[in-house]
């Protein structure tokens, strides 16, 4: 069996807000194995970033985290202290954010920051750190790597900065990388390059990768497994093949129906849509979160919490009262399976 790198069980994040408690993340479970890519996909505000921040113990101060289990490489990190966590972050667990300038310091050179990233966690000489920085900058496809070391972040283009970020994240050779929308701010052409790069590096170094995005195209191309989130919950989870070719939850089906797919969606015809908006997660909420927008909703959907249940195939699960056969028939009717 593959080596488990991260195990998350029943993760919750609550944030006190003006009108009460915002239950932003409501019992999320997932795992990542060595060399595996898990994509977390979902619309703005569904809790993707808070989930990743909760794993890294970087939540905003007022946020309250809960979980049954949070293990990194077998070590309990739910109850680890801040000192242990800061040793883990940037060391065994790397992070890449959407906007590279949130992690790059404008006042220091690229070289300085990359060397520091290693020296903070390892006893190495500046020379060794510098060599590793050059090696990794070359790995991420930056030409004339050595000359980049003396440059400041603002002297680089957006695509280059994102590459530097990736190289910096690799300095300590992490087992797990969490990337939150790493390519959203970039052009499609550069986006493809960066994703290709991440996938290659991940294979080469056998890291686990959690990629957070709302771009279904990216997910389909890069994920081994996919978790679809809606309003604080995972509503469907499975392999990329299962989720994209046999979408089971009505929300996943709706999402796939919304995007124009070249060669498949007829040009100029109206696209599918999901009317309505996401429910407020402030206060108690015991119903299917998608009920208000679901075309298949019936009375029982709003009578209590909905649990995850297995779909037809192994490792494929979803959160809906409809049985797998009905879901499958719906998907076929909508032309998304």
């Amino acid at each position: 069996m593959a080596e488990r790198i991260l195990e998350v069980e029943n993760l919750t994040v609550d944030i006190p807000v003006g009108g009460g408690m915002l239950h932003a993340v409501q019992g999320i479970s997932f795992h990542v194995d060595k060399g595996e890519t898990l994509c977390i996909v979902g619309e703005s505000g569904c809790g993707k970033s808070l989930t990743s921040l909760a794993v890294m113990d970087l939540l905003p101060k007022k946020a309250i985290r809960g979980a049954n289990k949070l293990e990194l490489g077998g070590e309990d990190i739910l109850n680890a202290g801040e000192r242990r966590m800061s040793d883990i972050r940037g060391n065994t667990m790397g992070m890449i954010f959407q906007e590279p300038m949130t992690s790059l310091n404008p006042a220091y050179t690229i070289g300085n920051q990359m060397e520091e990233a290693l020296k903070r966690h390892r006893k190495v000489s500046t020379r060794e750190a510098r060599d590793r920085a050059i090696y990794l900058l070359e790995k991420v496809g930056i030409t004339a790597a050595e000359s980049r070391l003396s440059q400041y972040p603002h002297q680089l283009s957006g695509g280059l900065r994102q590459r530097v970020m990736i190289a910096m994240t690799l300095m300590c050779g992490p087992n797990l990388i969490i990337a939150d929308e790493p390519t959203t701010a970039l052009d499609v052409t550069i986006q493809a390059q960066i994703l290709l790069l991440l996938a290659e590096l991940q294979r080469e170094f056998e890291m686990g990768l959690i990629l957070i995005t709302h771009d279904l195209g990216v997910v389909a191309r890069i994920a081994d497994r996919v978790a679809v989130m809606y309003a604080g919950q995972v509503v469907e989870q499975g392999t990329a093949d299962q989720v994209f070719n046999r979408p089971t939850h009505p929300y996943t089906q709706g999402l796939l129906d919304c995007i124009p797919i070249p060669g498949k969606t007829e040009r100029n015809k109206p696209l599918g849509s999901i009317p309505g908006i996401v429910p407020s997660l402030v206060g108690p909420f015991h119903a299917c979160h998608f009920a208000e927008r679901c075309q298949y909703a019936f009375d029982d959907c709003v009578k209590g919490d909905i649990d995850m249940r297995p779909a037809v195939e192994d490792g494929h699960e979803y959160r809906c009262l409809l049985d797998p056969e009905t879901c499958r028939a719906n998907a076929q009717k909508r032309g998304v399976a």
Binding site: D215, G217, A223, T239, V243, I259
Partner: peptide, 8 residues
């Protein structure tokens, strides 16, 4: 070519 269609 850089258009990423959702095809796993």
């Amino acid at each position: 070519e850089s258009v990423l269609t959702p095809d796993p």
